[in-house]
């Protein structure tokens, strides 16, 4: 039985609902809404009040943001039986994970990175860390501009963290997580955590989809997570000709500790612009 089976009453209202994604606690559909038109329906079940609170935060955040970098949130409802639903803007796009090969060119990869930083800057200004940036959570519109989705585990730094202290790992996708996330060092998680995630994604793009911490390419380590914690990645790639000019940028993004990364979005953007300028020269 899938999660969607708990929502037959809702889904029956949208006979054309097409599943996009199904996870443990959440399912996403593309629907035709009578008022909103084509939009995304997210349904889910929460088991703990903290989870609901987290979802409420996601919604609150999205509502405050009016930016092409994020989908618009139309409606949020809490239903009986610990259920909830969200109507969200549908964006014609494909996930970055399906088009990694379009970004092996340095200028394209840098352009995408710059766009992502511009998008993230909006939530960073609100002291929100996305904490789960990965190619699946980045959509590419037809015009090439990215949209950042799934702020579900982002948290407002001003608020008390909801993550249980006893959890071995903070909420994140391990292969894209920063060391402080994997080690659950909650006090060290801030906007620079997202920079690490961006560092992995950018390097992966430049390497045609290969994960920079993959033991097979690193030639050392047991798995990606261990290599992330140990700071072992394919630094050699950036000592080669064209990619050398990106070395200072990537090395800082993939700094093992947050203090090794960029202290502010301004400094990060400056470095990206420097690289872009050199590439275009």
């Amino acid at each position: 039985m899938g999660i969607a089976d708990n929502f037959t009453d809702i889904l029956s209202l949208y006979p054309s609902a097409a599943p996009i994604k199904q996870g443990g606690q959440k399912a996403v559909f593309l629907i035709d809404h009578q008022d909103l038109g084509k939009c995304v329906l997210k349904v889910g079940i929460y088991s703990r009040p903290q989870t609901l609170e987290r979802i409420v935060r996601e919604v609150k955040t999205l509502r405050e943001i009016d930016s092409p970098y994020y989908p618009k949130n139309y409606e949020f409802q809490v239903l009986d039986g610990n259920r909830f639903l969200i109507f969200e803007q549908y964006i014609e796009s494909i996930p970055l994970s399906s088009c990694l090969q379009n970004y092996t060119d340095i200028e394209n990869a840098l352009f995408l990175l710059k766009e992502l930083v511009l998008g993230l800057w909006i939530i960073w200004n609100k002291q929100i860390v996305h904490r789960d940036l990965k190619p699946d959570n980045i959509l590419i519109r037809d015009d090439g501009h990215p949209v950042i989705i799934d702020l579900g585990i982002a948290r407002l730094l001003d608020e008390e963290s909801l993550t249980q202290t006893i959890a071995h790992r903070g909420p994140a996708t391990p292969a894209y997580a920063a060391p402080e996330q994997l080690l659950n060092r909650k006090a060290s998680i801030d906007i620079r955590t997202d920079q690490f995630n961006l560092g992995i994604i950018t390097t992966q793009l430049l390497m045609g989809g290969v994960h920079p911490f993959d033991p097979e390419v690193v030639g050392d380590g047991e798995n990606i997570m261990e290599n992330i914690i140990q700071g072992k990645w394919v630094k050699d790639v950036f000592t080669n000709h064209d990619l050398r000019l990106l070395q200072p940028l990537i090395e800082r993004l993939l700094g093992k500790e947050p203090y090794m990364r960029f202290r502010s979005p301004e400094l990060l953007m400056q470095q990206i612009d420097n690289c872009l300028e050199k590439v275009r020269r």
Binding site: E180, E257, P258, Y259
Partner: peptide, 12 residues
Amino acid sequence: SADLLNWITGIP
């Protein structure tokens, strides 16, 4: 010292 540096450099 890493924790200290993370903290200090994270104060905008």
